[in-house]
Design a protein around this nucleic acid. Structure first.
Lengths: 198, 198
DNA sequence: CAGACAAACATACGCTGCGTATGTTAGTTG
DNA sequence: CAACTAACATACGCAGCGTATGTTTGTCTG
């Protein structure tokens, strides 16, 4: 094993802290997660935490950024393999809803994130999911598939709808059934963006 | 002044606590609001709080219920004076977006509420706003104006879209301008529920 | 290559704040 | 009017965050 450089050690420490925080925040929620327990689980102390991330919020920010980027990557991968750009948008929305079913996403990104860090669109990660949706909508407008609406406004509402659907599904007794209802309603609403039909 | 009955005193105490909590939660957020300061402002101590509401969460629940009911009443009043049921739904949505601009609603009901109390639809207040929207949608379906979609699913997504729009607006530099963009996009999405157009 | 310097943590401390256990007062009932 | 209880206030313990202060280990320079 080659001797570890300083930078590598730091990166490893940060990664360990973020990994532990991800699990703790998802399981207990931000407020109930103890920084002492968190750091001890990976053989560190709070000293490492406050050195690397400033404070508890800083750690949450790092966790949120990581998850958010993973979500955007997954959503984009799913959306890009659809037959048409329009179907891509719908698939992207459905994927977003499904991802939000994971406790990590739900608890950390959708519930505690906004409450502790404020409006998601102001986050450093710039809410990757939102940006991806905006680009897709803009492309659809350019293709003449979607009406020349405000792409950002439409994307934000679409994402908001998907987000709320996810909360609904997660709290339900029969997630699979509710998921189907939510996706159907999502497709229906999104159709409002299309140019005249029939 | 007639001698105050015991029940009246209790009701007055509860009202004072809820009023103080509303202000404190809206201004500082749930986590940063101190129960000591809160109660002292209305000449009480934490003893009164834990006796009447059980714990800090209980107080938040009471505050949320109160605001939620006020919102539903306002939205219903606005929606019911529209020319048609369809315009009523749109007006209701717009009203919901506008109400969410108030710090009280935004901070307490939309951010801290879900994070601390969990999914809003599981709240004792049953999320009055959602119920109102569902009823409106069901009526529109019965009238043949809206496609026979899942009323609950559609209502939840509509509300979610409005909610997200509100967060966006509140964080923007030019709320009035963004409000207009959001309402326009909302009308556009909602149109997806209509039966065939043109 | 030795000494200085700073980064990367660990340790120790204080303070805030929640919840609870225990008092105290005032109203209600038999 | 005496016993009882609801409605608070007071007092205490404890967890947890942030910070101030050590300590070690790498890195850089003359």
């Amino acid at each position: 094993m080659p001797p570890k450089r300083r930078a590598e050690m730091v990166e490893e420490t940060r990664a360990k802290l973020v990994r532990a925080a991800r699990a703790a925040f998802a399981e207990k929620g931000y407020a109930a997660a103890s920084m002492d327990d968190l750091t001890a689980e990976v053989g560190l102390t709070r000293g490492a935490l406050y050195h690397n991330f400033g404070d508890k919020r800083g750690l949450l920010q790092a966790v949120v950024n990581q998850i958010d980027e993973e979500m955007a990557a997954r959503a984009h991968a799913i959306g890009s393999q659809a037959d048409s750009a329009w179907e891509g948008l719908l698939a992207e929305g459905a994927a977003y809803i499904e991802m939000a079913l994971e406790p990590e996403v739900q608890r950390v990104v959708l519930l505690d994130g906004p409450a502790v860090l404020g409006d998601p669109s102001q986050w450093p990660s710039q809410n990757s999911c939102l940006r991806a949706t905006i680009e897709t909508v803009e492309a659809l407008i350019a293709q003449g598939v979607v009406k020349p609406v405000d792409a950002e406004a439409a994307s934000r509402l679409l994402n908001g709808a998907a987000l709320n659907a996810a909360l609904w599904i997660a709290a339900s007794n029969d997630p699979r059934a509710v998921l189907a209802r939510a996706v159907e309603a999502f497709r229906c609403l999104a159709a409002g963006l299309l140019v005249a039909r029939d």
